[in-house]
Nucleic acid binder design. Structure first.
Lengths: 361, 361
DNA sequence: CATAGGCTTAGCAACGATGCAATAGTGCGC
DNA sequence: GCGCACTATTGCATCGTTGCTAAGCCTATG
């Protein structure tokens, strides 16, 4: 169970523990034949350094934690994968934990006291974390936030410009001729993401001179398919249903799409849909989903790079804010089909989709 | 950066380090007032035990690794979430890593030498790992395999009965009147999962007295949507296209479904589709996806329980095999719509789906 | 009154590694 | 011939914690 230690290798090679350590850590002043002898002993015994002991001594674990609300939400899974990969390239292990939505407060607290496991840093994708929570954090491993700018930045963060992105998505709906546009994903309070996306939604309306119908702002406690489906059901039950929906994430959008289609309506002809996040599902739904596509690869890289900088330099500089790029991926769910008023049941399903503004894998 | 240690607390409380340790670990023979004094000091300083040091001393890290091929494949993400949760309940941290498909061999090897991080155990979901690879593993942390029975079991494993499940899925297609049934996901070699599912597929045919058309067995190098879409494209290009498809996982099925719908055909009327895994996407696709639904919750629990048993008892008993239950979730993609020969373009989209054998969230 | 036994506290060594710096041995220049 | 720079190897202390065990005290019991 215990595995060989430096001591065992030293005995095997007939040198001191220290010399073995020197070989392992590539210390230059080791005679060639000694090095060879030690290496042979290492191979023979199958020695592997005990990272726990090394970490303890060095005061650094080479592990960073990634905390997301829910790992099985595709956006987070995709991001987690990229962050793990980025960390690995730099010799860091990434430990994932999830807060399960609302329980986050308690979990968050545990993570702010994250010293226990000796994470060298924590990358946190907050749901309902306030600036106050952050400021109460005891000094320890650096924290980096993914997503929203949490009030007065008390920590680094990496995010796309949510307002601009939501604006662009909404403007796209306006551009294809929609005017009764609903929003799904509005949050009661505290959730920065939703706030910023709503802000962009409003801004687009303002610029286009279209009033926002407040009754079309649908709240969603969580950002799952089922919430999107439910919100859309409420929307369809109204006499004056919307002709487009901007959903604050792709899962909401896919849930909403399901409801629209199951009700016998067409997407985008009757209801155009735009999502947010560009998860893979949306590239294979029917119709495929128009969505805001953040550059996840870049987000992952910048997050890791920035937190490693903090770690290595114990950098006390002011928190920085990193803007990652995004683009609007236009697909079939808004397919540029012009709004044509009453002819609601004109065609069957088109045999092949006409426009394809975005590559389909 | 360093945080207070036992020593600091001891000084603060005016007792020995050992006594503080006794308080922290709930040793019963500590005088009440001493305990109170120490606790106060702990609170005042914000002391948190250093788990690295504790692990080093105890020779146990309370971390287990979960290695999956790809974290952003929904099935694995869902499973990972459950396993993390199960581990957490038992005081274990679960560290996730992914092998990225084929690179797995090298990564696997690293993980078999997983001692570095001092994982107490490794839960591995292998893609192309052979029994030989396993037997070469140096003795160390116990390994548990998720999924297929890898030849002569050299490690515990938890899995559903893939042959029976594939059989049931295929039989369902036969029961609703299909006879030209394709399979998507056949693997060239070495991949146990695919082999077993193909075996069940054949068995169902044999029992029903229907010959298997080998040209309908579609290989797929990976199990992604795009592979399913591509395979289905090849199938549809044939003059004698199939009337049903059994896909070896849900992603393949969703990709295949996309292709069928984009070609202007109907699911299930023209082509019925069954998947495997029951990922959430399939419950919200249109049509919703009939699929084999393994009891993931139970798989996660049993995997954690079994590996913790091995860890705690350093149990040398023979490897055991745990069968998790599954069921066939019948949804719209096979919706019991009877096969009606030529009338391919009969109806428009049904306004509301007729049968609903499975709950829709 | 002596002794056993329970309570309470603490000292020491050790987990496996590395930082620091000392000890030798060699070759070189002046 | 001596000091100095450089190479090669090593011992000791230490990271923060816990296992083991001793020591002191107090109470109950024969």
């Amino acid at each position: 169970m215990a595995g060989p230690t430096l001591r065992d290798v030293a005995a095997e090679a007939g040198v001191s523990i220290r010399t073995v350590s020197n070989v392992v850590s590539d210390y230059p002043y080791v005679a060639d034949d000694t090095r060879a002898r030690v290496q042979a002993a290492i191979d023979r015994l199958g020695y592997r350094p005990n990272l726990l002991a090394r970490s303890l001594k060095q005061g650094r674990s080479h592990v960073i934690a990634l905390v997301v609300p829910e790992l099985d939400v595709p956006y987070f899974a995709e991001l987690a994968r990229l962050i793990i990969a980025e960390g690995r390239e730099r010799g860091y292990l990434v430990m994932i934990d999830h807060t399960d939505g609302d329980k986050n407060l308690e979990r968050e607290l545990i993570l702010q006291n994250a010293r226990p496991m000796n994470f060298d840093g924590v990358i946190l994708s907050p749901l309902a974390l306030s600036g106050a929570d952050l400021s109460e954090r005891p000094p320890g491993a650096p924290i980096l936030l993914l997503g929203e700018k949490s009030f007065d930045s008390l920590a680094d963060h990496v995010a796309i410009d949510n307002v601009a992105a939501a604006d662009e998505a909404t403007t796209h709906l306006i551009d294809i001729g929609r005017s009764r546009i609903a929003a799904i994903g509005v949050q009661p309070s505290g959730y920065d993401t939703a706030k910023l996306r709503l802000k962009g939604f409003r801004r687009a309306h303002r610029r286009a001179g279209i009033p926002v119908d407040r009754s079309l702002l649908m709240t969603a406690t969580r950002f799952h398919r089922t919430d999107g489906a439910e919100a859309m059901r409420r929307l369809l039950a109204r006499p004056d249903r919307p002709d487009a929906v901007f959903c604050f994430n792709d899962l909401l959008a896919l849930g909403a799409m399901r409801t629209v289609l199951a009700a016998g309506l067409r997407v985008p002809e009757d209801v155009a849909i735009v999502g947010f996040d560009d998860i893979e599902d949306g590239r294979f739904s029917t119709p495929t989903l128009t969505t805001i596509s953040p550059d996840k690869q870049l987000i992952a890289r910048q997050a890791i790079e920035q937190i490693l900088t903090r770690i290595s330099k114990s950098d006390d500089a002011a928190p920085i804010e990193i803007r990652a790029p995004f683009r609007l991926a236009i697909r079939e769910s808004t397919a540029g089909v012009p709004r044509d008023g009453g002819s609601r049941h004109q065609a069957d399903r088109p045999a092949s989709r006409p426009t394809r503004s975005d590559s389909q894998p």
